[in-house]
């Protein structure tokens, strides 16, 4: 057989992959360095606020992805 690496097969698939990559990049260096300040924002340390922005982002991206992806035949 011809071997391959699995990759997205549609524009929506690529967008979803990009969203996952952006979310992961948001939680690690260098992005996390932008929030490394002591003065509280919204009553919390900036890193804590950013952490929960990422939590919210993960939830929203998966919520949107569930609506976008074409459900494969093995679902349900």
């Amino acid at each position: 057989m011809k071997h391959y690496v699995v990759r997205p097969r549609s524009g929506k698939g690529w967008l979803l992959t990009l969203a996952f990559v952006v979310l992961i990049a948001a939680g690690i260096w260098p992005v996390i360095g932008l929030f490394n300040r002591a003065q509280p924002w919204l009553g919390l340390p900036p890193i804590a606020v950013w952490t929960y922005v990422i939590v919210l982002g993960c939830w929203l991206v998966m919520l949107i992805a569930n609506r976008c992806i074409k459900v494969a035949s093995h679902d349900d």
């Binding site: 996952f20 992961i24 804590a48 952490t51 939590v55 993960c58 991206v61 998966m62």
Partner: peptide, 23 residues
Amino acid sequence: GVAVFYVVIYLSYLALVAWYCGP
């Protein structure tokens, strides 16, 4: 201190992994 929040971030990323690999 705030180093503890790395746990919340990786747990959220585990949800992304579960979303992709779990099904």
